[in-house]
Design a protein around this nucleic acid. Sequence first.
DNA 1: CGTGTTTGACCAGCGC
DNA 2: GCGCTGGTCAAACACG
Length: 518
Amino acid sequence: MEKQHRRELTFLHSGDFLRQNPGVPDRTLDDSSDHVKPQIKEMDFFSSQYQSHNHHQESKADNNDNSKNNGSSSFVDSCVNIGLNLLSSSPGVSRSTNEEKPVNSNAQESALKIELENLNEENRRLRGMLDQITKNYNEVQGQLFMALQKQAHLNQGDQKDAVNGMPGTVMSVQQLMDPRPSAALDVNEPSGSDDKTQELSASQENTMEVVSIKDGADQTSQSWGSLKSPKLDQSKNEEQASEAPFRKARVSVRARSEAPLISDGCQWRKYGQKMAKGNPCPRAYYRCTMAVGCPVRKQVQRCADDKSILITTYEGNHNHPLPPAATAMANTTSAAAAMLLSGSTKSKDGLPSSAYFPSLPYTSSMATLSASAPFPTITLDLTQGPNAVPFLRPPPSNASFPLPLHGYPQLLGNPMFAPPKLPAPPAMQLGQRPASMVETVTAAIASDPNFTAALAAAISTIMGAPPRNNGNSSIINNDENNNSSNGVPAPALAAPGSPQAQQSCTTFSTKTCNNKPG
DNA sequence: CGTGTTTGACCAGCGC
DNA sequence: GCGCTGGTCAAACACG
């Protein structure tokens, strides 16, 4: 009955990263304004429209320039804007210069003309650059997509061997990555039904996909699953079978925070608290309340070893649109889960996702996989990531999500989870700034090229090492040598759960450790 | 009064 | 079969 001191750490703009913001309730995050938006203040006539144009282009360029440093990227952006302003509606330039001083001197006029020409020239050049960048971006994305498809085919073959080539196993990449798009659209479904029935009733049209999912579930549970859910294996209920893969993969986020609550834009309702074995701090159970029947749940617990670390574990995928504030982080966790699950689709002979990341000397310090946990769990460790915070530049107004996620067309393609990079409806854009802290963290995770590598490495590891059920440590560090011989009965089709598997929304929420349970 | 939290009870899986 | 543990439920309670 004791009242628990409750605070909240709201994700703010990158500049405010980790600044504690007590008293800001969870839900205000969406509403909080763009107070910290680094606005460019009329530094010259070019920039006056800087922020009002071409966000999408900016995003694209931004994405492509991700690896570049701040300067070059912003250079491109601003220059592009300059050019467009000049071409489209540049009264500020040509007219003002021409009209303010009508006929001062020919020399001045010609100088202006020359300048204008130069600018036009530069504009053309920059446009070309932008085109090139866009082209490259599309190209790379296409290649990635092809790679995914390739792997999907491999898995198909594998799967056919194993499952007599059931129709459901023939999946497009999209299916592979996004097994139940319309299930996700069931926001309006009367939720008197439970998550499970809801998901089952996703639609008849999804039968194929559900079959695929079930296959995946079975496959998965044979490899992972004996650990926990024979009931899922038995699959007395298709609901459970279909849901299984989605709730199997988990994304665990470790973040250092003294605050008992960190907000990410999602709404959570606490529905339980338990003392977990081996940890003096209670584990709290939350479910997403942003939509009725949303199956997403999370567990929040402080690390037993270091109580300043919050461990938030997400499970399930949202069946509703996410606010931008939640989307960014959700995308990150989704990507993690996607990589985890799609990685586990490795075929017998092939290296899984590491194939996409050929050189992986990087052993994960940010992303680790747990094989001992009941579910495959990927842990994103934000407590020690070298660039977990500071490297971020102020994101463009329409927060473009860092590159790695672009490898997951299902994330981008699913309207429910449209990443902030896409031109968002105004309503969505309203909340974009408040997401900045989430973006910050998200970007910190995802834009780090090592993060992807880390994930891949971790996946490789867990792929190589069959899940051990010794119930010990929950985090596996990558030893490169785990792959082996054990003939991993790798789930031939873990993909069912893959991409969407964890459309997780990330809220760090916790109670202080000194809470006396009970 | 509506909403969210607390907390004991309940259930199911798993190991012995 | 039994006990332990994790996870969920739901009544009671607190708060605005």
